[in-house]
Write a protein that binds this DNA or RNA. Structure first.
Lengths: 204, 204
DNA sequence: TGAGCGATGTATCAGTCCGATACATCTGGG
DNA sequence: CCCAGATGTATCGGACTGATACATCGCTCA
């Protein structure tokens, strides 16, 4: 059951680990995490939240502010102990499913909570994936000496360039990570030594 | 009914205009047109073919090679007169639906069959779309001075850079197109002066 | 004051699309 | 001859989206 989307579940868990929220805000944050594109719809989010609730990974106390003020129907979700464990487990995976386009961004967004070794694994896996794609396009391009429209050609050339660019980006990140593993400078980490658990969620 | 996917329909029509094919080859060509990602599945292709068939935009003569040789169950599809008309119609549109990520690539791939004015419109529309996205990310980035993970920040920075890059690419194309409209050099056109209708589909 | 109105908030559903799968035929190598 | 792998057509369950519905909040303007 909990095997449905994977990516969304991870994103929700990760976001809730930072601070408790309700669905609507979750959806807004999600746009930031998943990139401006890949917007998630409520039709996916709420079912996901439900299944997470059923599985016991998150809870919602509606009992708060019962003292007489306005009773909104806002549900504030937060991680349970099981949920935190689940998150750590997911974060530690870094398997081949993490190299995918939609998965990678989310995994990367939560690198702050991720072990350094896993970070490196994901980065390198992603690079292989991209190089593989590069290979495909290149060979297709040379094979396509046949009769291709020059617009099609230009499109593929541009696509190839984008991939090459991303590979270079990954290479820089990998280098930085390796340095970080060796000497741990505060190169790319606002939270350098301490391992998270900073739940300072003071909104408005 | 024929309002189902739009993009796929256009791609199929455009590919079949170049030369008649069967579904399997169509699917392979599609990978090239839609980019290495965005691979289309048979679960979408065959239904699309069926509806196109029903609508009378394409046909298949299975009557060929009935003389006694091996009767394959290969269906070779080709455009009908209605289909060609439909394709021209779709190609002439260039409306707001063409600025989308998935649509744009396909539209661009068939620029060879597209009118110069429409090409320009699509290119510029796509640019606006991208600039809008750029705006969003930029403002999100400055608003996100709050407490963002530096990995998340790096991700968004990279995303923004990609968008900026693509805008620059578009700008070059637009400039080239404008020159082409004004002076028509064979800058980006294998078929410079003649307005399409070159159906030299001689496959092996 | 309160009427409008856009943002916030939760929820569902029909339709669409994908991944997996099944099945059949053709081709070439051992 | 036989098998493996490419070619080829087709379908289905289930996930995901976009649209929609509904309700409340907080702001502005007359």
């Amino acid at each position: 059951m909990s095997r449905k989307s994977g990516v969304l579940e991870l994103a929700v868990l990760g976001l809730l680990h930072e601070s408790p929220m309700h669905g609507y805000e979750l959806s807004k944050r999600l746009k930031g995490v998943l990139g401006p594109l890949r917007a998630i719809s409520y039709g996916s989010l709420y079912p996901c939240l439900s299944s997470l609730l059923d599985a016991g990974f998150i809870t919602t106390d509606d009992s708060a502010s019962e003292s007489g003020a306005g009773r909104r129907k806002k549900h504030v979700y937060k991680l349970t102990a099981d949920g935190k464990e689940r998150l750590q487990e997911q974060l530690a995976e870094g398997g081949p499913s993490s190299w995918d386009d939609e998965s990678f961004d989310v995994r990367f967004a939560f690198f702050g909570q991720t072990d350094a070794a896993v970070r490196l694994r994901i980065l390198e896996g992603r690079r292989s994936r991209l190089e593989e794609r590069q290979e495909n396009v290149t060979s297709a391009l040379s094979r396509a000496r046949e009769r291709v429209d020059s617009y099609t050609l230009e499109l593929q050339r541009h696509g190839l360039e984008s991939v090459e660019r991303e590979v270079r980006w990954l290479e820089e990140l990998i280098a930085t990570e390796r340095d970080g593993v060796a000497a741990r400078p505060h190169r790319l980490n606002t939270t350098p030594a301490t391992t998270g658990t900073a739940i300072e969620g003071e909104d408005s």
